[in-house]
Design a binder for these strands. Structure first.
Lengths: 336, 336
DNA sequence: ATGAAAGCGCTAACAA
DNA sequence: TTGTTAGCGCTTTCAT
């Protein structure tokens, strides 16, 4: 059990003061070239690593960012298990964080109180909210002095914070347009969850496409949650309807719909075409592969981390608002 | 920007010493009931939260555990994107960690050096290695004084650390047995990656089943990596072979195989039956649903966290070795 | 350019 | 039982 080497050890070894070592470590131009070299030498020889707890304490900066995710019945499990969206996003964060000498903490949070405590306890430098912002949470958050980044938030208060979103409305439009071009006139829309502002945007775009094509909405259903299972239930209903196409605002729901349809003997896309939204990895595993509106989730995650770190570093006055593009991906499930 | 409240503020507010506050916070039975109450009162009124950086510094304990994952070309992206196994595992960790007042850090690591530095910098209390242990890493690690938990490691050095694995061999056996029972005699085995000790176990079990049934292995292929894409390639080869069943030691590979087979006009399971291993969430999204050997990954993750935290707390002499059960799940892809 | 020392918030040994 | 205080490892001001 080797004892850990501290800044003092390095100082002693190099025959300089701890201050000088600190200067070198932090790249502060206050030391002579010679001192610098001796310190670096000593650091290498001793294998010195600054203790972040100490740094955190004295700089009041932890080099850690928090990622808050929605909890379902007290656990992240369902969300992680079902929805690769989150893990892809996380991998983007991880990549950028690591490159910048940051670490990140993930937590599921129910109450605003917990969240505040968590931030205080861990001295987080910034925080990313992913897909969920309890009503009152944002009020409490404003009081906090750390940068906050909201992902996919359309609530009116979102503008007080930094935000990153995608072109949800355009995505909806693209999906609708695509289905019209394929000649469909009886199309069902399936919302991926109740009261979702994100879904609302996608729907607006979709409606715009229908309007342009002079087509009336044939059927409007809403999945309770954005899950395969809920999609399956919807699919059961759809199988006995007369629609020839369905656009679900989430791949997971679309996948569930497709499976239900197939289990009931319907052919996709010939009997019913299906289009989803997100382009999850799994969406090209199925037969037929799912047509969808793609967003680049890894990039969204990495950009989120980069943006947050930039804000932490530069402390700009204004809040940043970024919108990422989407892209229609036509695969088998709608390609008649 | 509210100033953060420290232990001193609480002490002042309650009219006691910082030591007393500390005792109360840490549940050390050294204070009178009355003092305790006054302190708790003060804490509540001020909304005090201990600063973990300070705690970490003085206790030399961070209440953080590290999770090390394999990096593919410098990023976790492919692994997270493709393989929900990892995210499910993580969600198990998150659940237990949060319940126990721990946080966890995730990193992808290439070199042992980096890993050691990371642990030192962050003062991690313990560490979980998930699916990867670079050759020499374990040597370096032994020098570390923190508990180390290896997941799915069969390398000989694994016994020096705590380990959690599943009944891989039995899983292979179950799969083989199942296929035999369905009357198959020409079965292909597909290893989920090259030189994988885990795969080797599964294969041994599988072979045992064949041996018992007096059936010779018809075909043995190896996927380069455990991915859908690699599975697809294998599936293309299989489509022109004369096997009637295939057991792939990973769902991802099995899914790829199935898709390739279907794309080539083969019917699953009537032309060829397919069985995988893991029971990923996506494995029941497909048509047909994939038969597989299930492991409970969330549980594996939560048990990992719990085990590690226990070890951190109790510092037992011996290393713990846990084997989790598996279960055959017969779905459509092998149900003839 | 260099170093001494105060302080970051908390714990725990020691005194009272 | 309670309080005082010396660290924990590092940063940073202020002398030198």
């Amino acid at each position: 059990m080797k004892k850990k080497v501290t800044i003092r050890d390095v100082a002693k070894h190099a025959g300089v003061s701890v201050a000088s070592v600190s200067y070198v470590v932090n790249g502060i131009q206050k030391v002579s070239e010679e001192t610098k070299e001796r310190v670096q030498q000593a650091i290498a020889e001793l294998g010195y690593q600054p203790n972040f707890a100490a740094v955190s304490l004295s700089k009041n900066r932890s080099y850690m960012i928090g990622v808050v995710m929605p909890l379902i019945e007290d656990t992240l499990a369902p969300i992680f298990k079902e929805n690769s969206y989150y893990s892809e996003f996380i991998s983007g964060i991880e990549y950028v964080a690591r490159k910048n000498g940051y670490d990140f903490l993930i937590t599921g949070v129910n109450k605003a109180e917990e969240c505040k405590n968590w931030i205080a306890k861990r001295n987080l430098d910034g925080i990313i909210f992913l897909g969920m912002f309890p009503e009152h949470l944002h009020e409490e958050m404003k009081a906090l002095s750390i940068p906050i980044l909201l992902i996919d938030a359309y609530e009116e208060y979102a503008d007080h914070f930094h935000t990153i979103r995608i072109a949800d409305e355009e995505g909806g439009f693209l999906a609708g347009q695509h289905l019209l071009q394929k000649g469909h006139t009886k199309i069902a829309y399936v919302a991926h969850s109740e009261n979702s502002p994100v879904d609302a945007r996608r729907y607006i775009g979709y409606q715009r496409a229908l309007y342009r094509g002079n087509v009336k909405e044939a059927l409007h259903l809403t999945a309770k949650y954005s899950t395969f299972k809920e999609g399956y239930k919807i699919g059961e209903k759809l199988s006995s309807s007369d629609v020839t196409a369905v656009f679900a605002s989430s791949d997971l729901v679309a996948l569930g719909i497709m499976k239900a349809l197939q289990d009931r003997g319907k052919k996709v896309p010939t009997d019913i075409a299906v289009v989803g939204f997100d382009d999850l990895t799994v969406s090209s595993y199925t037969s037929p592969e799912l047509s969808t509106v793609r967003q680049d989730v890894f990039h969204k995650g990495s950009l989120s981390a980069q943006t947050l770190i930039d804000v932490i570093t530069d402390r700009p006055q204004e809040t940043k608002h970024i919108e990422l593009p989407v892209e229609l991906v036509v695969r088998e499930s709608s390609n008649t």
